[in-house]
Design a binder for these strands. Structure first.
Lengths: 337, 337
DNA sequence: AATTTTTATGCAAACGTTTTCGCGACAAAA
DNA sequence: TTTTGTCGCGAAAACGTTTGCATAAAAATT
C-alpha cells in the first residue's frame, strides 16, 4: 500500500496481465484494446501510480533533465534567465538542475562533471569570469550532448548561443547622448575578459568615432559594482574636462555613479546624463532620479536558450554555431534628457 | 571511443575481469586486491569513466537529487536561499532540481507530482501564497520521502521547518521606534494568508501592547510591493494623526513608502522613521536615506534546510516536527534615529 | 597431509522501465 | 480447407549499476 510507490508491476499483478501490456496501455499504444487501456488507467490512478523517471531514463538513455550553470543565482539577471529556462523546460516535460559556478573556473569544471554524471540531456551555460580555458565545454560536446551558451558566451567553442544586443544597446545609449548635445561621454566598463563588456564598449566607441569624437582614455574606466561606480565617478569629476554623460556597463554601477554625482551636487540629467544597462526593475525604480537603462530580455533569453537546447536534443549533429540575438531597448527615465 | 560514455562494462572488458569486481574496486571495497584496484582506477581515468547516476539511482533507490519549490526565483530572498541549498547539497554529493510555483496552488501541485516522479530523495518547499489545502504535502510524506518547509512554512503539516525570527525582528523594529520616542507607529502588513506576515504583525502588536499603546486600525494597512507601499503611505499621511514611524513587511514596500514620504516633503527620520524587512542589499543601498531593515539570513536558511533534509534522508521516521529558527538582526541605517 | 580459514573474484539477480519479437486467436480471402 | 492478415497480448532482453552468494586459489592451522 504505502510501501514505496506503485510500479507497473503492481498494476500488472492486480489486473493479471503482463507489464508490457501495462506499459503500452499507459502510452496509448494502438495494439492495446480500449477495454484493457481503460482498466489499466483506472488501476493506475487507484494505486496513484507515478512513472519512475529514473527507470525510464535508464531504459531510454534520456533523463529529461537539463543542466544550467550560471555564475551566481542571486543576480537578478541570472535568476530571471533561470526562470525562463525553468518555465520552458517544464512546458516540455523537462526539469532543470541548477549549478552555480560562483565565478570560479574550478567550480565550473566540477559542475560540468557532475551534470555529465547525472546524464543530463543538455547543458546551458553562462561562462564564469575566471574561465579562460574551455576544454571542459568541448568535453561536453565530445560526449555528444547538446550545449548552449547564454549571455556569457564563448567564441572558442562552436555551439548555439543566445545573447542580447549588447553592442546595439550601448550604441543606442551613446547615440542618445549625442543627439541631445552631449560630447564628453564617459564609460564605466566591465571586465575585459567578458565578451559582453567588450561589446558594450565597442558600441560606445563606434558611436564616438561615427561622430568624429576622439576617444579619451580618461573617460573609459573600469567599474562593475556600486562601490567602484561611485569611486570612479568621483575621479571622473576631478578631471579637468568633466564628462557630461556617463554610460555604465550595468545598473548597479550606474547607481553608484548617481550617488557620487548627487553627493558632489551635480544635477542629473541637466549637468550630466546617465544610462545604465540591464534595466533591473528594482534599481531603476529606486534611484532618484529614476535610472534610464538598456532593457535586457532575461526571461526570454532563458526561454530561448532552453528552446534551442531542446531542439538539439536527440539530433545527429547538435552543434550548429547559430547565434540568436535578442533585442535590447533603451528605456528612458529621469537620468536622461 | 567517443561513442557515448564509458561504463563499468567497458572497464571490465578492457581488463578481462567482471563488472562486479570493477564496481567494488571503484568503491574501494576491502575484498579487492590493491593491484586490481589500481588497474581499475587507471583504466577508468583512461576511458574518462563517469558513474551513471541514473543507473545508480535505480539500483539503490536513491537519486541523489533534492527538489526545491519556491514561489518565485527572481525574488532576491528566494534566490539567496536557493544558493544556500545548492551549495550545501553539492557539498554532500546531491543536486538540486528547482521548481517555481509562481505563487500558484495548481503549479505547486504539479511541481510536487513532477518531483515525486523524478524520485527525488527529499523536497524543500516554500509555500505559495495561494495554497490553503495541504494534502499534496501530506502526500509527499505518505510516500515516505522527507519534506522540509522553509520560510513560508505550513503548520498544518508536521514536518521539520526552517524560519527566521519574524516575530522577533518585527518586535525589535517596533521596540526601536518606541525607545526613540515614537508612539504613532504604522505597519504596512503583508497578506493574511502568510504566516510570516502574521508573525511580523504580531511582533509589532505585542510591542504596542507592552507599552500600553492602543492599537489603531488605521495604522495597520495592507501593502506588499512598491506601488502599494507608496499609495498606502500617502493615505497614512492624510490621517488626522499622522504616524511618526512606519514598519514595513518587506524592503520594497518600505521603499515605496519612502518615496511617498519624500514627495510629501517629510523628513526621514526626523519626522517619520522607517524600517523595512529582509535587508535586501540593493534596496537598502539605493534608497535615500538608506533604509534601515531587519536582516534575514536567506543563505543560511537555505543551507540549514538542505542540512535538515539530508539528515532525514534514509531514516525510519523522517518527519520530526522540529522548527529551526534563525536569528534576524536590526540593521540601522539612515531611516531611523 | 588434511582441514579450515582467508582472500579475491565471478555469477546472477535486482532496480522499473521500454521495446523487439513472436504467438495464438480469429476473421477474411482464396 | 488452406492461406493470409489483423488484433491483442506476453516473454524476454536491455539500460548501468550494486550486492548476496558461491567458489577457486592461497594461506594458515591442525
Amino acid at each position: 500500500m504505502s510501501k514505496g510507490q506503485a510500479t507497473i508491476k503492481d498494476i500488472a499483478k492486480a489486473l493479471r496481465i503482463s507489464v508490457s501490456t501495462v506499459s503500452r496501455a499507459l502510452h496509448d499504444h494502438p495494439d492495446i484494446s480500449e477495454k484493457t487501456k481503460k482498466a489499466v488507467r483506472e488501476e493506475a490512478r487507484r494505486l496513484d501510480y507515478q512513472p519512475n523517471l529514473i527507470a525510464q531514463g535508464l531504459r531510454q538513455q534520456k533523463s529529461h533533465l537539463i543542466g544550467l550553470i550560471v555564475p551566481e543565482i542571486v543576480h537578478h539577471f541570472f535568476s530571471t534567465t533561470l526562470s525562463g529556462v525553468e518555465d520552458f523546460a517544464n512546458s516540455q516535460g523537462y526539469h532543470v538542475m541548477v549549478c552555480q559556478s560562483n565565478e570560479s573556473y574550478e567550480r565550473e569544471k566540477t559542475n560540468v562533471k557532475a551534470l555529465l554524471s547525472s546524464r543530463v540531456d543538455g547543458i546551458i551555460v553562462s561562462v564564469s569570469k575566471e574561465t579562460t580555458d574551455f576544454s571542459h565545454f568541448k568535453h561536453i560536446q565530445k560526449r555528444g550532448i547538446p550545449l548552449v551558451f547564454m549571455d556569457r558566451i564563448c567564441n572558442e567553442v562552436k555551439a548555439p548561443s543566445v545573447v542580447c544586443q549588447d553592442y546595439e544597446g550601448a550604441y543606442m545609449a551613446a547615440e542618445h547622448f549625442i543627439s541631445h548635445g552631449r560630447r564628453r561621454i564617459a564609460h564605466l566598463r566591465g571586465p575585459k575578459s567578458l565578451l559582453i563588456s567588450k561589446q558594450r564598449l565597442n558600441g560606445y566607441l563606434d558611436v564616438l568615432s561615427k561622430h568624429r569624437i576622439p576617444k579619451k582614455d580618461e573617460y573609459i574606466v573600469f567599474a562593475s559594482d556600486f562601490e567602484s561606480g561611485y569611486r570612479e565617478t568621483l575621479r571622473l569629476l576631478d578631471l579637468h574636462e568633466k564628462p557630461d554623460a556617463i554610460f555604465a556597463v550595468n545598473d548597479i554601477t550606474a547607481a553608484g555613479s548617481l550617488r557620487a554625482l548627487q553627493e558632489k551636487g551635480f544635477r542629473v540629467p541637466e549637468d550630466i546624463s546617465v544610462i545604465g544597462f540591464g534595466d533591473d526593475p528594482v534599481i531603476t525604480k529606486l534611484t532618484v532620479p529614476k535610472l534610464s537603462s538598456i532593457y535586457q530580455p532575461g526571461y526570454e533569453m532563458g526561454k530561448m536558450s532552453a528552446q534551442m537546447l531542446l531542439k538539439n536534443i536527440g539530433v545527429q549533429e547538435p552543434f550548429p554555431h547559430e547565434i540568436r540575438v535578442l533585442k535590447t531597448e533603451l528605456k528612458l527615465r529621469e537620468t536622461t534628457l
